[in-house]
Structure formats: structure tokens, C-alpha cells
Amino acid sequence: MSFDIPKVAYLARIAMSEEEIAAVKPKLENVMAMIDDLVKIDTTNVAPLASPLEQYQTLREDVVTETDQHVTYQKLAPKVAADLYLVPQVIE
């Protein structure tokens, strides 16, 4: 398995300890061994199927339908100040 768990965990933004990586490795190896069978299937000239009904995404009229609900939504946020979502300092 070429699955570099620390690298993929970084891409997925999930912190993982050495112990967690060791514990998940055999389970991921089983899953990847099952998935690896796919690679051998001949799909020459087969187009990918992204959505079962192959419908196009519908577009609505370009008019404003949303009302401002930031007060309601920001009540759910862990940290808010002056109507802004707060995160740790990004720029020094």
C-alpha cells in the first residue's frame, strides 16, 4: 500500500498520533486491498458516471432570495465578535 497516512491525514486536516496511525494502518490496508481490484477492470471507451440519473444541475433565476440571517447562524459559532467569526491569529 502506497498510502502515506501522515501525509493524507495532513491533507484531510485530521490530527493523528503515532499510536492512532499504527492502529488504523491494518484496517486501511484491508480497505485498499479490496479497492485495488478496481484497477484491473477494463474500462476502455467507458465514460465515467458521476450521477445516477445523469441530470444536469438546474439553475435558478439570478435574483436575490436569501435574507440576511447572520445573527441566527452566528449563534451556532464557537467564537464570534463584531459579527465576525473568530479564528486564531493568521497574520503576524
Partner: peptide, 15 residues
């Protein structure tokens, strides 16, 4: 390509 796109192609074969 090897996994995701290939899976979508096999999805079409199943469909």
C-alpha cells in the same frame, strides 16, 4: 484517475 475516475467508469458498467 486510477481510483476515482476508474470507479465512476465501473459505476457506468454496473448501471
Amino acid at each position: 484517475d486510477a481510483y476515482y475516475l476508474q470507479a465512476q467508469k465501473v459505476r457506468r458498467l454496473i448501471a
